[in-house]
Design a protein around this nucleic acid. Structure first.
Lengths: 236, 236
DNA sequence: CGCTCGGTTGATGCACATCAAAGGCTGTGG
DNA sequence: CCACAGCCTTTGATGTGCATCAACCGAGCG
């Protein structure tokens, strides 16, 4: 669960992320005061919706889904966070913060957990860092808004849109074939779009038969990008 | 459309908002370099979705709705901004920002427009200001997330929830009667919840007859707060 | 005085949720 | 190593909440 904090390798790892690429080793170390690396198993929970938030952190590898319980007892997935994403940083400067979402590992994942106090001491006085956080926060916000504006369109469009979005994250190039870099179940897709699992299954198995996507091992590959784009933009 | 920039009265007005309450007059003036006060008529557009964003600003009085066009040609309202709200600040530090939403006045409203350059010069180096922006951004995000997690519940609940939320903004106290401080049409409510106008009308006229709300002049008053809360939390 | 805008009401149909039932796969504990 | 439990996927049958369409009214306004 908790990996020994190997300073050298962690700093090297962090430098891959835009967040830290411009910083010196010394500065990075300061920003990591009191931190530890958490290794999550599949479905391992980092924290719960509503819990007292005394730490934030950065996804190092794997992925975590951020979700909230709905009144029906279901879960609504709000965001899929991938390596380099900063989680919960934006609530650290509240008086007594509570996590606004739950975070659950999707497959084995690693997370650099940083104490809230370190945020207050070292992060919150650094404009560049704050601007970086603002940047990631605002892109997440815009994504949420985009999804909302699609919420009254047909489900196939929304599923297509989500797959495009997720596969675009690591958008290698305009290849005809893309892959979603996260192990996604249909349940998680349906939780993200707030629709029934069966609807998602029907749509996607149809696409599988039509050769538009293929889902080997729990990873989804888009084999006919053109067609999927068409579906995503279809305003019939 | 454009009011003369009366330094003295504007600074006084700004000091009412938490954003500036701790700042000295001189600092406020610097943060307003190149600014002007814009007076919008009902339905006047401050800016469009997709336009090049060369300014941001603060709502001084009235209200503006932030919306995005949907694929069906409808509008999806994402936020109702009230006096003190900062608009579009969080995209100012992007290379060539475009407005992620349109802003439209609801009733006569006033807006302090500040050039992007002023943000880059004076705002982005000030951690306290950045934290304030982050705070408003994050509360808006949490509101969006809450709405999303309600998106699969019945429409009456969602309407009730929205009215509670909006009337709570100026939450005077636990009075039995509250009022939504913005002139809202049913159309705007339906645009905000992404449902059909007729549905909203049916629900609300039912509530009017039941004495739960009353809509004199274009303002909505909640006359039976207890009952409405009940409806909002009803998980039948 | 026509015109646009907000509100209202009823009839109709469809896209989806819901319910039900079953098979494959994985991990876990006896 | 086997058995069981839980999760993911699949498919079909059934129901319904809500969008859609259509028509009408009153009020403000140029």
């Amino acid at each position: 669960m908790r990996e020994p904090f190997d300073i050298k390798s962690t700093v090297a790892e962090l430098k891959n992320f835009t967040f830290f690429s411009n910083l010196e080793d010394k500065a990075i170390l300061e920003l990591c005061t009191g931190s530890s690396v958490i290794v999550s198993k599949h479905k391992g929970r980092l924290y719960h919706f509503g819990d007292k938030a005394d730490a934030f952190g950065i996804v190092l590898s794997g992925a975590y889904k951020l979700s909230r319980p709905t009144p029906n007892g279901e879960d609504s997935v709000l965001y899929f966070s991938t390596p380099g994403d900063v989680i919960a940083a934006f609530i650290m400067n509240r008086p007594t913060p509570a996590y606004p979402v739950s975070a659950t590992a999707m497959g084995t994942s690693r997370f650099l957990q940083i104490p809230r106090q370190t945020y207050l001491d070292y992060w919150s006085a650094n404009p560049n860092l704050l601007l970086e956080i603002q940047k990631s926060l605002s892109s997440r916000m815009i994504q949420l808004q985009t999804q909302k504006s699609l919420s009254s369109t047909a489900i196939p469009q929304r599923v297509a849109h989500l797959l495009m979005e997720l596969s675009g994250k690591n958008a290698s190039r305009n290849l005809a074939v893309r892959e979603v870099p996260i192990p996604l179940t249909r349940q998680e897709i349906s939780d993200s779009l707030d629709v029934a699992v069966e609807s998602v299954i029907r749509i996607m198995s149809h696409w599988s038969k039509a050769g538009i996507i293929s889902s080997t091992d729990s990873f989804i590959r888009i084999t006919d990008l053109k067609k999927l784009t068409e579906i995503a933009n279809d305003d019939t």
